[in-house]
Amino acid sequence: MLFEQFLFFVFAAGALGGALGVVLIRNPFYSVLALVVHLFSLAILFLLLTAAFLAAAQIVVYTGAVMVLYLFVVAYVGGTDDELRPKPHGLANALGPFFAAAVALQLTIAVIGSSLAALDSQGAEVGDGFGSPGQIGEALLTKFLLPFEAASFLLLVAAVGAVVLARKRRGLHEPADAVSVSEVLRGGQPR
């Protein structure tokens, strides 16, 4: 139990620190790394909530695949020298802190109002095999069938859309006077 509490506080700090780092760090590469730390810490928190499948899915999908692509793109496109800074804008600069404070206040009220009472309790009872792949699969294919299918359809549309967009902006065209090396090697005359 003590070990679980220790893990909870370490990774809760990791999740919060990672989330803050995403917003506060100017260098895009480190910002993405902070997001990796955040998502990994969240996965460990899922694990502590006996949701092993969700934790593994979180790491495989988000930390292991989505963030890899982010890192790939940022490492290629964003250098270390050009820091991300908001463009100065009079009205937004003046009102921004005010709205940010208002949102923070509202969220704090919501969190304190709903979660403070739960701090001292033991949490909900979980049955045997809770969060196992079998139970999650059954829930997805019976109780949540429609949202599940709708989400997978949405992902399919997004994937097809990405392919269409990528094909449309094909950058490199083969020059007209290109010579095929393999053809020359086979003894054919260069065109």
Binding site: A52, F53, I59, V60, G64, P133
Partner: peptide, 13 residues
């Protein structure tokens, strides 16, 4: 119980 996924999780890390 998530053995195979565990293998993928650390493989991707």
């Amino acid at each position: 119980p998530i053995g195979v996924l565990y293998f993928f999780a650390f493989g991707s890390l």
